[in-house]
Each structure stands twice: as structure tokens, then as C-alpha cells.
Design a protein around this nucleic acid. Structure first.
Lengths: 226, 226
DNA sequence: ACCTGAACACCGTTCAAGT
DNA sequence: ACCTGAACACCGTTCAAGT
């Protein structure tokens, strides 16, 4: 879906020189486009309202007639990115032949998302107290997150993977994936020498083994199945 | 000049009421104490240089004669906190009877560290390009981190836990622990209903199982050992 | 009705001036 | 020698004033 709408190159000047007034839709897109560019260049730190305004050819004050805050502007782009992420991993999830492959493919793509959107701001914290984000921005994010989880769940089902405790496994995987992404999008991983592919593969094998065979209380030591 | 450098308890007030001048050691402690209080109250966001200065009863400019930047002041406290963390978990690591217990105990304590120091700033990224942090601040952090890893390694050895690939397992565990801590110190975990003890226990069982039994390339399906 | 941009209330950091 | 605090260069955000 997104691909068609993104053909916003060479903005069409309906009016004369001053297309400005009236077209709020178009200006909103201009603002989002300028913000997207800044974000891609340097993450949340680079998302400067004055730069956004300059990029969208409006004044700083005008940005605030479209988005209540810098955080909200960010949230709008994040929601959009989650949908794109879903669309990216959908074919990969359908194609994966093992749960390990699935994990590696998803993690690989998630790295790009995290690099731009995941570092400084915790959007889910904003979602948690609902008052902070207007429903029209919160709802798409929640929906996209749900669809991503559904996608993974479906793929695991197709592969016949039986998780020990799916309810706990999903947030656990989500936290783990964030931890790995944080590790590898920062410079922290330079303190040891491992590459992302090595680590992603190792994590995939470890997690799949743990999530399909683990889960019994730690004391018992007979067989894995009685 | 002074041979007995370690006898710095109870700073001698050579001057009258204004002990201020001269005693740089003491003032450095004042600044760190003020910063520590602010940090405990609200994390990196609350670490405001003007507030630190006020708390230490010096001017804002003076802070910069002790620490080159806000980040460096933070780093000094972080290094200190890592040493305290090591001392906290040392007896727990010695007492743990299973690797799962070890993980839960360490993770539990780490949550407090992460809540204050781990959120906004990635110190390890600073460490990675060495020029950004002076050696006298970097060295204690690296040393503390090494001692913590050594502690965990020793405990695992005592318990007879054989990791599939210890070299990869350590950074993997570190990333995972950070991911879980981030999940539970933010508000994100409210989106599902699980408590920290439930999740910590689940993570412990999953990771121990995965790290002791996993690791083989995903295609082979015979026994765990040939 | 919609937009502008000066102004406000903050930051981290610097540096001439004081003692 | 050491400390001060005004000043600088930035922020996100607001709002009286323009069109």
C-alpha cells in the first residue's frame, strides 16, 4: 500500500507561486516528509522542529498546528514505519523453512527499524498512559504491532513450532530482540568482536531450543517429558 | 607533596567559615553527591548541570573544572554504580544453587541499575570510541564490567553449567538482560500483564535450556550428541 | 481560517572578570 | 590558582499579530 502513496517527488503546484494556503493534506505530507528525512539521517536527535519547518517550507509555529508536539510527530512516522516493517517481513515469514530462519529474517529487518526509531524514545511507554498520545496516532501503532505478532504466530504455526508458553514467549522475544538491536545499532558490540549474522544465528538457535524444550521448573532433573 | 594520601577523612578546615577554596577533593565529592541525588530521582533527564551546581553549592562554571561534560559526570557515577552492583551480586552468585537462580538474582538487581543508569545513555558506546572518555573514567568501568562477567563465569563453573558457546553466550546474555530491563523499567510491559518475577523466571529457564542444549545448526535432527 | 516569527523558558557550555 | 555568573548558541513550544 505504502509504495503507491510514496510517489511524492516533484510536488505539483496547483496554485501559482504560493500553493501554501488551503491544502492542509499536502502540507501535512510535506512536514512528514521533511521529518522522515531528518530522522533517517540521524534519529530522534536530528528531528529538530526548526529544521522540519524549514524542510517543509513553513514556519516553526505551523508545525504545531499539525502535530501537538515533537513526540507526536515522531509517533506518526513510527506508526508508518511499523506498517512498512510488517509488509517487509510478511513474504519472509511465509518463506521461512525453520523457526530459526524466521527469527534471523525478522531480526535482520528489525535492525533497520531500531536504528532510526528505537533508540532514544520509547513509544510504547507513551502508549501505556493513553492520555499522552491521541487515539488516531495510537491506534495504528497498536494495530501494526498486533499484525506483526500475528504474522509471526502464523508462521510458527505453519512450521509446527510448539512454544512452551506462547503467552510469555512473545513479550520475551520482543524484549530480547530489542536488546540485541540495541546492542548492535550502538557501538557497544565493538567491545567484543562478533558480527551481527553470527549473533543473530546464535540467538535464533538458543531461543528456539529454549522456547521449545525449556519451561519446566528448574529442580526436576529426570527426562524432559515424563 | 603529601606522602600519606589516603588519610583524607574529615577534611581539615584550614580557613574559617569558607572552607570552599583549596579542597578540590571535597568539592568533587559534593558535585558527585548532588549529581547522584538528581540521578536517583529521575535518571539522566534530571541530571541538570545548574541543579548539580546548586546542590554542590558552586557555580555552574565550576562543575566544568571538575568534569569536562555532563556525560563525563554521568560516566563517573555509572562506574561507581557498576562496582556497587558487582559487590551486591557477589554473595548471591556464590549462593546460587542453579544457573536459573543465578540469572534471576542478577537480573533482579540489574533492574535497579538500569532504571537509573541504563535508559537514555549508552555508556558502552562512549567507551567504544576511546577518545570520547578519558582513561581514568573508562578504565574503572571496563574493569568493573570484567569483574562482573568473571563473577558470573565462576558461578556457572561451580554449578557445572556447560554453555554451548561461552564466547557468544556472554554478549548474548548481556543484550538480553538489557532488553528485559528496558522492557520492565519502561511502561511497555503494561501492554501485557506479566510480572517481573514471572518473566525473569521464564527467561532464566528458557536461556539456560537454550544455552546448554542448543547451538547445533538448525537442519540436523538426530540426537543432541552424535 | 490559517500562518508567521518574535518571544519565552529552558538547556549545556564557555570565558572574561573577579578574589 | 580557583571560582563566578553573564553570555552564547541552541532547544521545544506558545501566541499576538498579520494576511
Amino acid at each position: 500500500m505504502n509504495n503507491v502513496q510514496n510517489a511524492t517527488a516533484a510536488a505539483p503546484p496547483k496554485r501559482r507561486t504560493r500553493t501554501r494556503w488551503g491544502d492542509r493534506e499536502g502540507r501535512r505530507r510535506d512536514i512528514l516528509a521533511a521529518a522522515r528525512t531528518l530522522l533517517a539521517r540521524g534519529g530522534y536527535d536530528r528531528l529538530n522542529i526548526r529544521d522540519v519547518a524549514r524542510g517543509a517550507r513553513v514556519s516553526a509555529g505551523t508545525v504545531y498546528t499539525y502535530f501537538a508536539s515533537r513526540e507526536e510527530l515522531f509517533a506518526a512516522l513510527y506508526a508508518e514505519r511499523l506498517v512498512a516493517f510488517h509488509d517487509e517481513i510478511a513474504p519472509l515469514a511465509a518463506r521461512a523453512r525453520t523457526p530459526e530462519q524466521l527469527f534471523v529474517a525478522v531480526a535482520e529487518r528489525y535492525l533497520d527499524v531500531y536504528r532510526v526509531y528505537g533508540r532514544e524514545v520509547n513509544l510504547w511507554a507513551m502508549l501505556a498512559d493513553a492520555s499522552r498520545l491521541p487515539p488516531e496516532l495510537a491506534q495504528p501503532m497498536i494495530q501494526a504491532a498486533g499484525q506483526i505478532m500475528g504474522l509471526v504466530g502464523t508462521a510458527l504455526g505453519r512450521l509446527g513450532t510448539r512454544l512452551v508458553d506462547a503467552e510469555l514467549a512473545i513479550p520475551f522475544l520482543w524484549a530480547t530482540l530489542n536488546g540485541l538491536a540495541d546492542h548492535f545499532t550502538g557501538q557497544r558490540h565493538r567491545l567484543h568482536g562478533f558480527s551481527w549474522p553470527d549473533m543473530a544465528g546464535f540467538a535464533a538457535r538458543t531461543l528456539v531450543t529454549g522456547l521449545t524444550q525449556g519451561g519446566a521448573p528448574p529442580r526436576r532433573r529426570k527426562e524432559r517429558r515424563r
